[in-house]
Design a protein around this nucleic acid. Structure first.
Lengths: 349, 349
DNA sequence: TTGAAAGCGTTACCAC
DNA sequence: GTGGTAACGCTTTCAA
């Protein structure tokens, strides 16, 4: 493989001139030289060595993407969009599956440093953990996707950008949709352990309840997921919750699932119990994974605008690497309703 | 960040001694020196700079993984296993989504070269394409997953390892299972365009037909997928095929889907047509994606042993990078039946 | 057992 | 406009 020196020799110029065309400093040479150099690059099939470039400049065109598990459809969708957005800037993405294990996360961060990666996107992990904070202090630009950041954290102390769907709004949209379609007795089905995004969704749900004076009974039905980060635990949880919900009296006529995986389980559980969706109970999920359009009935959901969020994350990564002084910010994206067939039609529709 | 020189200075030794402990050449120094150096590394929190190492040695501890789309569950499962296997050797995985576009594939390969990556796994793409062949010639070690390699290619000419499930066997297992459970009139549902893995599956299917004298009628039902590499096109295809199959007379009582995505669509199509699975028609898929256990009824399938295949691929990558003379080989893995509830119970069960 | 020094392929600064 | 050259952080060879 030809290197910069070969090109220089072939074109009869100095290495620095070649480097100049490589870096777009075209004002520093005559068109003729430039022509000659480009010619040489072409005939020698020259590809600049990124590693050497990097050793000089200190960075690679790569970002890290840390996800709990790429097999989780929400995260593979994220990975795809992030990859696409990164590609648009000629960056590649390094994948890390951590299963939320701290040591895997730590190892990932160390590797990113060692490889000269300057920015990473951390999905659905508590970014306040020591290793993230330390990494940020050492100059790693970190963006937190699906915020688990306390929203009231002191702005001065904020170290990370945070990009997420407005989960309060998502909870609100889901609940309102059920009510608009005529549900009178709705509940929310969730995993028991609280994360920021989960409590935001629950907040949104409660807002709607309040506006419609639907208080009173226990309306948040929760269950602890079984251990292990199996890829179907959320679904199994949803299945279990279906039974719980059917035992409530009076029986709910609508349920919002904290996420689509739970919703899919719910659908299965209700079906096995012989309850018809949406005739007897309406179900709506949150997250809109591809699977949701394939369930029976196709499940309505609330969708994060991933194809906008991923480009923003990449944009911010780029900007903050370029200018480390830039203060981290919090970005909230408005979710949208995706109406399919798991929610009853309006009485007057 | 401390560098090797800082460590050397701090420990009062030369850079080369530090390099020696870094590279495990412990026989070349007194235990005392070694001790001192390790001490220094620790107190300075030294992390060797991989980029610099790489510039010298010429390679990074990274592999590339080229997939059509990470959102496709078969490939996210692959990505997970490959990542895991790579991690076990302290390698990281660079992801490339190509949607089977040639220019994306080419760009990916170029990037891999530029970043010093020495080995890539190419999933489900025709590896005989010029850019792969060229890359191999230039020293990139390529492993082809889910073989689209002509199996009768001259061994002398083989440039790539090929690792895949034995697709003939997979087709055979699926068809036999239907027949053992009492189906008398089985068909295979597939996308129309032929790939190696598809025709192997069809071969296996035909073998069974022959053994049971079930020849005669048209038994391979195919349909062209609509363009675009949407992530649900296979499923929509399956949905369409359901209608076609119900029109066959006499109506089939069992169908093997070329892959699980098609199978899921088939299930949906049959359900919407009011046909009960497995009572009226049995369905079995091939590939065993996580989704298949969540369908209604949970879909039986034939499973590639990914958790064995991924480590082998990494192993081979490592070996062939280490020893470029090593001849490429073809590895075939025996698939296994995953019996769920979309196939009728035996008459005598 | 240790150290000095020559690269690896680039970039960037400074002379010419 | 162009060219020379010192880094960047490491590995490796060779001499001490």
């Amino acid at each position: 493989m030809a290197n910069i020196r070969d090109v220089a020799t072939y074109a009869g110029v100095s290495v620095s001139s070649v480097s100049n065309v490589l870096n777009g400093r075209l004002d520093q040479m005559s068109p003729a030289t430039r022509e000659r150099i480009e010619q040489a690059m072409h005939t020698l099939n020259y590809q600049p060595n990124r590693i050497a470039q990097q050793l000089k400049t200190g960075h690679v065109r790569m970002f890290g993407l840390l996800v709990p598990s790429i097999v989780n459809p929400s995260f593979s969708a994220l990975a795809r969009e992030v990859d696409l957005a990164a590609r648009a800037h000629n960056y590649r993405v390094l994948l890390g599956n951590t299963y939320r294990q701290e040591d895997e996360e730590r190892a990932f961060i160390e590797d990113m440093f060692a490889h000269g990666v300057r920015g990473i996107i951390v999905a659905a992990s508590d970014v306040r953990k020591m290793h993230f904070v330390k990494a940020a202090r050492q100059g790693m630009v970190i963006i937190n996707y699906d915020n688990r950041l306390a929203c009231n954290i002191d702005n001065e102390l904020r170290q990370f950008d945070s990009v997420s769907m407005d989960n309060v709004e998502a909870g609100r949209i889901a609940a309102s949709h059920l009510i608009e379609r005529g549900c009178q007795n709705i509940v929310l089905a969730t995993e028991a352990s609280l994360t920021m995004s989960r409590s935001h969704k629950i907040d949104g749900f409660h807002t709607v309840l309040r506006n419609h004076q639907l208080t009173g009974a226990q309306r948040v039905i929760e269950e602890k997921a079984l251990g292990g980060y199996g890829d179907t635990e959320m679904t199994e949880l949803g299945y279990a919750l279906a039974g719980r919900i059917l035992n409530i009296s009076p029986r709910p006529d609508g349920v919002v699932a904290l996420n689509d995986a739970v919703g899919v389980g719910l659908l299965a559980g209700l079906r096995d119990a012989g309850v018809s969706v949406p005739d007897e109970i309406s179900v709506i999920g949150i997250d809109n994974i591809p699977l949701s359009k394939l369930t029976y009935p196709p499940m309505s959901s609330v969708m994060p605008p991933l194809e906008k969020m991923a480009p923003l994350m990449i944009e911010r990564l780029l900007q903050r690497i370029d200018n480390p002084q830039l203060a981290p910010e919090e970005f909230l994206f408005a979710p949208a309703l995706v109406s399919r067939e798991s929610v009853r039609k309006s009485d007057n529709g």
